[in-house]
Design a protein around this nucleic acid. Structure first.
Lengths: 162, 162
DNA sequence: AAATTTATGTCAGCCATATTGACATATTTC
DNA sequence: GAAATATGTCAATATGGCTGACATAAATTT
């Protein structure tokens, strides 16, 4: 079956892409949601755990900038993750006001389990594309980001690469 | 600037795509959110208005299946949209238990304004891609959807085409 | 050394959006 | 007439956002 498409070059909005984005994201988040529910966690916990796991030593401030939520909103979720031993905080070695965040083994295990679900979905999607599909999908998503946010996003994603 | 990428074929998860999806969706929804705030509406109102506007005569049940939320959650949001004259309900001509939903002129105007914002972002993203970029982006998003949901999604998107 | 700024946390309260369960009504179908 | 269907409503609850105010410890500036 082929995906639906709107006719282009007619000035008509790309309703197909608008709606596909909604449905793709809806289902993309649904796999982790099921697992998280087992732990009494929600999507907010996932985001925090994911970025901390990917960026050991992340500061609270960094997390706020990434997630674009307030300190208070983050506070509750982060506290739960710390209390339940998925994340630990350590004072910064240079600036001891900072609390650097690290995933524990338990946290890394959950993060991996969630990543694995998302990896499966993405791999399946990429398998249906031509060779340059991954490159183009990546570029498309990248170009969807606010131009003034791209630098930060790139820095973040590059941060832990070998 | 190029988007970041993880090395493929190494068994490493596609962290780049996982995170780009998060950031792309975050920014994709941020434009409409600003406008909606002017009306005292949220993202939930947007989704309802969008699909009703795109599918005149949609039933409440259809909307529940699309949005995957409960009747009670939809109820409040829909009621506000009806009370404030963005959507009207009409009994189904065949089955009078049904309440078919239609966007009013006011509703259509708001929907168009929101669609326009999303169209601009998508057009800008597509402009940075090769010729087959749109086709591949569409296919990628389509393949991200749960296989057993694809038929419904296609039917919905095809529904109002000329 | 004192004053200021920064990173973080916390308390109290509010709002939007989701949930479940139970029940009511009108209408259609068997 | 009975059962199933489409919808609505009431009550209670949870999650995850928000704002504003205030507190503390540590670093930086003067």
């Amino acid at each position: 079956m082929d995906p639906p498409r709107t006719v282009q070059g007619t000035g008509e909005p790309p309703y197909d892409l608008i709606e596909l984005l909604f449905f793709a994201y809806r289902d993309f988040t649904s796999d982790p949601d099921e697992v998280l529910a087992e732990y009494g966690f929600g999507r907010a916990h996932h985001r925090v755990l994911h970025f901390v796991n990917r960026n050991p030593g992340l500061r609270v401030t960094d997390l706020l900038a990434i997630l674009k939520i307030t300190k208070q909103s983050l506070g509750r979720v982060l506290k739960q993750l710390v209390d339940e031993d998925f994340i630990v905080q350590e004072p910064g070695p240079v600036d001891r006001r900072e609390r650097l965040l690290y995933a524990t083994e338990k946290g890394a295990a959950l993060a991996m389990r969630l990543t694995d679900l998302q990896t499966k979905r993405i791999s399946r999607a990429l398998a249906g594309l031509p060779d340059d599909g991954q490159e183009i999908a990546r570029r498309f998503l990248y170009e969807m980001i606010d131009p003034d946010q791209r630098r930060d996003v790139v820095r973040l994603i590059e941060r832990d690469k070998g």
